[in-house]
Nucleic acid binder design. Sequence first.
RNA 1: GCCAGCGUAGCUCAGUGGUAGAGCAGCGUCUUCAUAAGGCGUGGGUCACAGGUCCGAAUCCUGUCGCUGGUACCA
Length: 476
Amino acid sequence: MIKFYLTSAIPYVNAAPHIGHAQEFVYSDTVRRYRKLKGEDVTYLCGADENALKIVQAAEKKKQDPQTFCNVHQKEFLNLAEKLNVKFDIWQRGTDRKHHFPASQKLWELCDKKGDIYKKTYTGLYCVGCETFYTPDELDGKGECFEHPGKKLDNVSEENYFFKLSRYQKFLEDLIKTNKLKIFPEIRRNEAFAFINRGLEDFSISRSRQRAKNWGVPVPDDPNQIMYVWFDALNIYQSGIGLGWDEKKFRKWAPQDAMIIGKGILRFHAVYWPAILQSAGLPLPQTLFVHGYMTVDGQKMSKTVGNVVDPVEILEKYNSDSLRYYLLREIPSYSDGDYSERRFKELYNSDLANGLGNLVARVARLAEKTEVLQIHKFSFNERAAGNFQKNLEEYRFNDAIEIIWNKIKEANQHIDTNEPWKLTEKGLTSFLNVSANRIVEIATLLQPFLPQTSKKILDQFQSKEIRSQPPLFPRL
RNA sequence: GCCAGCGUAGCUCAGUGGUAGAGCAGCGUCUUCAUAAGGCGUGGGUCACAGGUCCGAAUCCUGUCGCUGGUACCA
C-alpha cells in the first residue's frame, strides 16, 4: 500500500483563525480524502506553532502564563477544523515536551554533527519595548519602531547559533531545477529559485534564553540558548510522526509527500527546510503547494480595517459543504481570491441549490414512481478521468470541480431532452437507470470536496427505494 | 530602486499571431419531474493606454499608467 504523508502550515496561535486558515484546511482535507479514495495510506498532520516570543508577549497582555494561553487558543483551530469537516490524523503542538522537544533536539544534534551549526555574534537594532530585533526597513522614517515612537532602538550584540545555509546553495539549486522538489504553481517555483540564485547566507537559529523569555525548545548542551522558532516549528512536521521518539513510525511516514502552505512562508519551506533536512540526513519533501491569500470584498484583511472574516460565523449560518464549495470552486487555487457574502450567496444559489441540489431532487422525485432500479456502486478511481485526477494532483481544485459541474449540466440536459414525465413506467425505469446512475457518479466524484453532501446523495440513491428528501441546499 | 506577474463582458476568469470566449448576473422563450428550479436562445467588450513589427495583434516589441508579489532572519 502506498503511503502518503501530507502536512499543512501549522497555524500561529496568537490570533483567532480567519478565512485563510479555513481555505488551507479545506485544501488539505480535500487532498487527504482524494488520496484515501485512491486507496493510499494517508496521514495528514497539522499542529500549533506555539514557541514564538510573541506568544509570551500576547499571554502577558492577557495576564496568562504562556502555556495556558496556548492551550486555549490552539483549540480554536481544532474547533474550526471540526466545523469544516476537516480531519487531522495528527495534531502536533510545539509545546509538547514529550515528543516535540526531543524531536527538535535530535534534529539539532544531527545538523550539529554534520558541522552545520556554529556560534556567531549577531548584532541588530533591538527595541526594548517590543523585545524584538528590527531590520532598518521595518522602522519608520526616524529609525524608530511603530509601536514605540520616540524611543531609540539599542544596538545589541548577542551570541547565537547559526545554520550553514550557504553550504547548501548548489544542493538547493539542483533540488528545484530538477523538480526533485516540485513546487506548484510555477510562479512560486520561480520565486524560490530566484531567491536561491541571489546567494544564500547563513541564518540564526537560536536566541538567548533571556531574550526568548525562557520560552521554547532548549538548545542541547547549552543552557543559555533557546531554538529560534522557525527551526523547531518546521520540525513539527517530523516530531508528529515519531522523529526521536518512534523511529519505526517515522520511517513509515517520512518524507512529506505534500506540503500545503500560504505564499507568505514559501522561503522557509522551499529553501530553509530542505537544507536543514539534507544536513540532518533525513528524507526530503516531494511536493509543495503554495496557495494565495484571501481578500474580503476586494480589500486586504486586517484587524485595523476590521474586515477579518471569521469562518466560524459563516459556518454557524451555512453548512460546511457550502463554505467548502466556495473556497474550492470560487477561489482560484493558484492565485489570490476574494470572499464576499454577496458572491457566496450567488454561488450557493446557482451552483448548490439550483445546480446540484435541484438535480438530485428532480431525479429522486421521478424515481419514487418506479420499480426497483439498477444502481451502481462506482469506485472513485474508475470514474475519475485523467484530467480530473491531474487537476487534483496539481492542486487545481477549482478546475477539478468544474468538471463535475459540467456533468451536472449534462444531466439536466439529458432530462429535458427525454421528457421523462411523459414516459410510461417502463420507459421511465429505463430512463432512470441512466439518470440516477449519473447522479451516483457525480456524488462519487464529489467525495473529496463535499463529503457530507456526497454521502447524503449516495445514501439516498443507493438505498433499496429512492425517496425524495428535504432539499440538500435550500435556496437563500 | 531592482526583478517577476497581472490589467479581456456588471462579476470570476479562459484565450498567447488569423473573423472576441465560458460560467454567473440580465433579457426573451419553452417546459413542469424539481428548491419560483431546468432546457434553449439572446444582448453586452475601442481585449488598461499610446506607438511599432506584420497581409493580419488581446496575442510579438517599445513606452506610459494602474495593481500584485518577491527582494532573507517578518508565522
